[in-house]
Design a protein around this nucleic acid. Structure first.
Length: 753
DNA sequence: GCTTAGGGTTGG
């Protein structure tokens, strides 16, 4: 094969075979023998592979030398299998070396302003040295029985014991995991990483784990494994029938067919060889006194008891048969509701969390799904520190405690809401909530008039909560109105009404430079701009498409007709589009990633008026600020760029890009009155929807609609208005000295999966 | 750059 491949990553990166002498591209001329000579440069443009009759191929590329003089870029035409191999082996920006070429007159020199001659690579003497594609890293895994002290290894195993991550006495977070594999040996692994996200995401004993770069060392006569620099980990559900979904925070990791097989083998080996210890997982209805157990549950509220103890109020949808302490937490130190509907009370248990676990417990939010490991269920003591206890006249109660320390894997983990492990529990919880809704008791009705009721919806189906970290007591809206601007308040409110009712009107464009908000231009306005740009050009010439090359200086002057260029353009990044309607442009966006609409102005190509999007990327449209842009169509300089995105385009053309934002005015109410608050800066957090998505994506729009319908049920709906815990910021806008404005911040609406 | 932990409870 005439395409010789050089390693991309090794020291030979720029090696030219010793028998060749590299000559500068400007020295290329005709009537000269270039035997033993080579040309070196990077690929700045690569045309499509053109298939010819009789299994022949041709490809045209541009190679750019290092100097800046205009004649350093030269067209290179490759024929036959050389063309085919080069097409798949080399990409833009690769450094290549060509030899054995002949020199011809470049027929396109007057148009493309490149080198007056071109290089023709054809026949057995022609060579082009291209780099080998990035080496695919293949990891090897050591069986546990084969571990040797002092070696750094990669391992696979089944988790038989683990400690969820906890703060060590040093600088890192520590987690422990013990694994076994088919070699039937167990090994203890200790992982130190500063970031919690780099730790294994183990959800239960039996999970499959893969770890890279662990060092085997001897301690007390036994080998163990400890994380080293570059440690990485992926975990998988251990159940045979579940899909193999890697749990990792690592953005790029290798997972191939062999890995899939390894996971499957470990799963079935563990399933058939009873290698796992009996589960400690128990539901609340099965809790026995004087035992230790693991619990999967949802956090409803939490209350600080003292500096060494936090009480978690949880449920798992089952009823605990034992008599519990009736704890009345102090509302001032409670996060989440302090009272619950009578029918739900039976399901709620309190877990006292001590010492080193307090810090972690404080990070938890009502609504979180948790796994609490090694809870101690004990009978007895009526005395809990710092909380008022109603013993109901009897002495023996069940107390649940997560004691200090990490022995037996004691700890708390938040379980991803989408985890399949939660499905059954969530279904049971939903049934309970539905039952409660269907049979409101008199006492609940009474409660409505005394204190705002805790809607079960609010706790389970839509858990609304503040995400801010500051701790403030809830205040009334009347108190907020009396306060000085510039502060933050937590309020407990209902949503009385909101604007705009038509959701698409809430979508605006914001300029981060001049800070103005603008309406999103409607299609009619944009279509008119396209029509104006069309002018008479349509009658005289076809719609021209001008590919935006990724890495070339002079290519944009080349024009192609649609069909010829569509595939080429897709691989090159984008195109400039002239002479078509908005509708046609939209059709084209399904074929080409980046479409920049342009017009002809005094014989030159220019950008459209900025009322129209300056860029179409699929369904997404990007607009520029008319005040802050200095828009000019120039030949973009994108050396070495592999993907063109909106930022690159905006920067190249001097456009100050506008960002989509959502803007609502919410009328909040509580017993003391109403207050208008803006939902804007943190609207994306509030809805868990990006404004970009809301601009293009029906699902995102539906999400917003559903959230609004829930918070503020439509006329005729039986649903009650839920109470919300909201964080409000008060401020004085720059342009008005006397007016105080309110904005909702750091508040989110959690919705069910 | 080095250390952290090194499973195995019974309590507030």
């Amino acid at each position: 094969m005439p395409v010789h491949v050089l390693p991309r990553d090794g020291k030979q990166k720029n090696t030219v075979p010793t028998h060749l002498t590299v000559i500068p591209i400007p020295l290329i001329c005709i009537n000269t023998d270039f035997t033993g000579k080579a040309v070196k440069g990077n690929v700045s443009w690569k045309g499509p592979l053109v298939s010819l009759p009789e299994d022949n191929f041709v490809i045209k590329v541009v190679i750019e030398g290092k100097d800046d003089s205009p004649s350093t870029s030269i067209n290179v035409i490759l024929f036959g299998h050389l063309a085919k191999d080069f097409y798949s082996a080399a990409k833009i920006a690769d450094v290549v070396v060509a030899s054995g070429f002949t020199v011809g007159k470049s027929p396109t020199a007057h148009k493309d302003k490149l080198h007056p001659y071109n290089l023709l690579l054809k026949g057995d003497n022609a060579f082009i040295y291209a780099p080998r594609p990035a080496k695919i890293v293949k990891y090897t895994y050591t069986k546990i029985a084969d571990l040797k002290a002092g070696t750094v290894v990669n391992v696979y195993g089944v988790v038989v014991f683990f400690k969820p991550p906890y703060q060590s006495r040093g600088t890192d977070i520590c987690s422990s995991v013990n694994i076994i594999d088919q070699s039937n040996r167990k090994v203890c692994c200790t992982i130190f990483c500063a970031k919690i996200t780099a730790h294994p995401q183990i959800l239960r004993v039996g999970d499959i784990i893969r770890m890279h770069r662990l060092k085997a060392q001897s301690f007390n006569g036994t080998l163990n494994l400890i994380s080293t620099a570059g440690f990485s980990v992926v975990t998988f559900d251990g159940a045979v029938d579940r899909p193999i979904e890697p749990r990792t925070s690592c953005r790029s990791f290798v997972f191939d067919e062999d890995d899939r097989l390894t996971v499957e083998e470990l799963r079935s080996w563990a399933a058939t060889n009873s290698v796992l210890p009996p589960t400690q997982m128990v539901v609340l209805s099965e809790v026995q006194p004087n035992t230790f157990f693991d619990l999967t549950c949802q956090l409803l509220a939490k209350a600080t008891v003292d500096s060494n103890c936090v009480m978690l109020r949880v449920w798992d949808g089952t009823r605990c048969p034992h008599k519990m302490l009736n704890v009345v937490p102090d509302p001032n130190s409670t996060d989440g509701p302090t009272s619950f509907p009578d029918q739900q009370k039976d399901f709620i248990l309190n877990i006292f969390v001590y010492d080193n676990h307090v810090q972690q417990a404080e990070q938890l939010k009502p609504g979180d799904f948790l796994r609490v490991y090694n809870i101690h269920a004990s009978l007895g003591s009526d005395k809990e520190p710092g909380v008022r206890v109603d013993t109901g006249g009897e002495g023996c109660h069940l107390t649940l405690a997560l004691h200090g320390g990490t022995s037996y894997g004691k700890g708390i983990q938040v379980i991803p809401e989408t985890s399949p492990d939660l499905m059954d529990m969530k279904r049971i919880m939903n049934n309970i909530v539905d039952d409660i809704k269907d049979s409101p008791s008199d006492s609940d009705m009474l409660d409505v008039w005394v204190t705002p009721p805790e809607s079960p919806d609010c706790l389970l189906q839509f858990c609304i909560g503040r995400m801010c970290t500051h701790r403030l007591q809830s205040v009334s809206l009347a108190e907020v109105k009396q306060s000085d601007p510039g502060g933050r308040h937590h309020v407990r409110v209902q949503l009385k009404s909101y604007e705009p009712q038509l959701l698409y009107q809430s979508l605006k464009l914001h300029c981060s430079e001049c800070l103005t908000l603008q309406e999103v231009p409607d299609d009619d306005a944009v279509a008119r701009i396209f029509e104006e740009a069309l002018g008479d050009s349509r009658l005289s010439s076809p719609a021209w498409l001008i590919p935006i090359p990724i890495s070339s200086t002079h290519r944009s002057k080349m024009a192609y007709v649609f069909r010829q260029v569509a595939t080429n353009v897709r691989s090159n990044g984008g195109l400039l589009l002239r002479g078509c309607t908005l509708e046609e442009a939209c059709q084209l966006t399904t074929l080409v990633t980046n479409v920049v609409p342009v017009r002809e102005s005094e014989g030159r190509i220019a950008l459209l008026d900025l009322t129209a999007p300056f860029l179409f990327r699929g369904k997404r449209r990007f607009y520029g600020c008319k005040h802050c842009s200095n828009a000019q169509l120039v030949v973009p300089q994108w050396q070495g760029v592999h993907t063109i995105n909106e930022e690159l385009v905006a920067k190249a053309f001097g456009i100050q890009m506008l960002k989509y934002v959502l803007l609502f005015k919410l009328e909040l109410q509580d017993a003391t009155g109403t207050l208008d608050a803006l939902l804007w800066r943190d609207a994306e957090t509030f809805f868990s929807v990006s404004a970009d998505d809301a601009a293009t994506n029906q699902e995102a729009q539906d999400n917003i609609r559903q959230t609004m319908d829930f918070l503020c049920p439509q006329e005729g709906s039986k649903a009650e208005r839920p109470w919300l815990e909201v964080c409000l910021a008060t401020y004085q806008p720059d342009d008005s000295q006397n007016q105080t404005c309110y904005q909702i911040c750091d508040t989110t609406v959690h919705r069910p999966a």
